[in-house]
């Protein structure tokens, strides 16, 4: 529990806070569909870089918190992020050795899975799940991945997080 630990905890919760606020920015409904799933990207990044620190339990808690804050069906994002973290934990050794665009393709699949799981649970409440709602966020998140991972790597390095 050194200074490193607390600094990492502080910045991690800061990013989580910002990424939870991000979907709440009022946007035109037509634009809102291309909003990237930043929380997913953060989780993927963290699992790939610090697989020992980031587990499925954390992903579950994070998802549940997101559900409560955003007023979704409770458990929908908890389930989706748990699945996401599980797949990442099974395959981080492989993904880490990929080139960044190969990683982006993998991110597309991961975020797509996340969207499918979320809309599956939301579907029980009677909500429609149009295909574009699954494809577009996944696509935008994948295209953002190279930039996102670069920025996060820089931050991790500069702020000496998680070492």
């Amino acid at each position: 529990m050194g200074a490193h630990y607390w600094r990492t905890a502080f910045f991690l919760s800061f990013f989580i806070g910002v990424f939870l606020v991000f979907p709440l920015f009022p946007l035109a409904r037509k634009l809102a569909i291309v909003r990237p799933e930043l929380l997913c990207l953060l989780l993927i990044f963290w699992v790939l870089n610090r697989p020992q620190q980031m587990g499925v339990t954390f992903a579950f808690g994070l998802g549940l918190f997101q559900d409560v804050i955003h007023g979704n069906v409770w458990g929908s994002h908890a389930l989706a992020l748990t699945v996401l973290a599980y797949i990442c934990l099974l395959s981080w050794q492989r993904i880490r050795s990929y080139s960044v665009w190969q990683q982006a393709m993998w991110v597309f699949v991961l975020v797509g899975t996340h969207q499918v799981v979320v809309s599956w649970v939301q579907g029980f409440a009677g909500y429609p799940s149009p295909t574009k709602l699954i494809v577009f966020p996944a696509l935008v998140s994948a295209l953002l991945w190279p930039f996102f991972s670069w920025v996060m790597l820089q931050l991790q390095w500069r702020l000496r997080l998680g070492t």
Binding site: F60, G75, S76
Partner: peptide, 12 residues
């Protein structure tokens, strides 16, 4: 993971 998935489904 299986336990957490079950928990999430029960909560939902």
């Amino acid at each position: 993971t299986a336990l957490l998935i079950l928990a999430a489904l029960i909560i939902a």
